[in-house]
């Protein structure tokens, strides 16, 4: 239990709480627009950036962030090339990211230890710089989404109607991608690159089970993500588990519970 009062754990907890707001929020927009896989893709590319950061001795999270942003551009470009098979572009870039990451990681043999932290998440690695970065990203995401909540709703619900209303749909699509890239690259240190997309998509999956309105679904995703993040980090700290794995397993448990409750309600 002592671990909970330590400085590094509290950093992880604060970081986790902030990510627990932004990740499911961006995930909700992605899932509703049928772009669930983008989170995974950006995370895998981001990890290549992290590897490069280690190799050249530059702050890895920042390099990961640049890589994730570059990936959003690449996905857009490829999506145009394969119009009707848009998911193909996502698959290509995802494997490209992992391939590059594995190459870069094996090139610098000395830092293998920290690799697993980036893949599966860790509560030990978050330093003050990371926390500040997470804080800045949180503010940017909340401001952008809060300022354009109604336009993002319309875009997500009915992109054509948004365009006919004269909304700059390309700008908003791009905004969603960029914000997602930001959130993912700052999340991987805690949740891990392999698991971060679960924090984006599973809360949204839960909200589809219980929410009637868009407002409700926004609240639902944040509440569920926070539950899983806080409980997950605490148990990871106490029992020395991988935080990412614990959080994701909790999310899956919550989803299964909600599904079975709904089934029972429907049957009764």
């Amino acid at each position: 239990m002592d671990i909970i009062t330590t400085e590094f754990f509290q950093r992880a907890l604060i970081g986790g709480v902030l990510i627990g707001i932004t990740a499911p929020l961006m995930g909700l927009f992605l899932v509703l627009r049928r772009l669930s896989m983008i989170g995974d893709t950006l995370a895998h590319v981001s990890i290549a950036g992290v590897a490069l950061g280690f190799l050249i001795g530059v702050y890895p999270v920042a390099v990961g962030l640049i890589f994730a942003l570059a990936a959003t551009f690449a996905i857009e470009k490829l999506r145009k090339a394969y119009k009707t098979y848009a998911e193909l572009s996502i698959a290509i870039i995802m494997s490209g990211g992992v391939a590059l990451a594995s190459l870069l990681f094996t090139m610098g043999k000395g830092f293998n230890v920290s690799v697993s932290g980036y893949l599966f998440g860790s509560i030990y690695t978050l330093d003050t710089t990371d926390l500040v970065l997470i804080g800045v990203v949180t503010v940017v995401v909340l401001l952008s989404v809060g300022l354009h909540a109604k336009e993002l709703f319309l875009l997500t619900f009915d992109e054509d109607a948004a365009a006919v209303s004269g909304l700059p749909t390309r700008f908003f699509n791009f905004m969603i991608s960029v914000l997602t890239a930001l959130v993912i690259s700052v999340s991987i240190k805690i949740v891990g690159a392999l698991l971060v997309s679960a924090l984006l998509t599973i809360p949204a999956a839960c909200s589809l089970v219980i929410a009637r309105s868009f407002k409700q679904s926004v609240v639902t995703v944040v509440v569920i993500a926070e539950l899983a993040v806080i409980a997950g980090l605490l148990s990871a700290g106490v029992w020395n588990l991988a935080p990412g794995g614990t959080i994701v397993m909790l999310l899956i448990v919550i989803l299964l519970l909600l599904l079975s409750v709904r089934r029972r309600l429907n049957a009764g």
Binding site: L147, E151, F157, D158, G166, R212, S213, F214
Partner: peptide
């Protein structure tokens, strides 16, 4: 059917979105 039937939006939210044109930005 231009939208997913599972989409979490109430009728009121959908009707209201008719007002969210470019002129209403910000």
């Amino acid at each position: 059917n231009s939208f997913n039937p599972l989409f979490p939006a109430t009728v009121r939210e959908v009707v209201m979105s008719g007002l969210f044109s470019r002129n209403k930005l910000f």
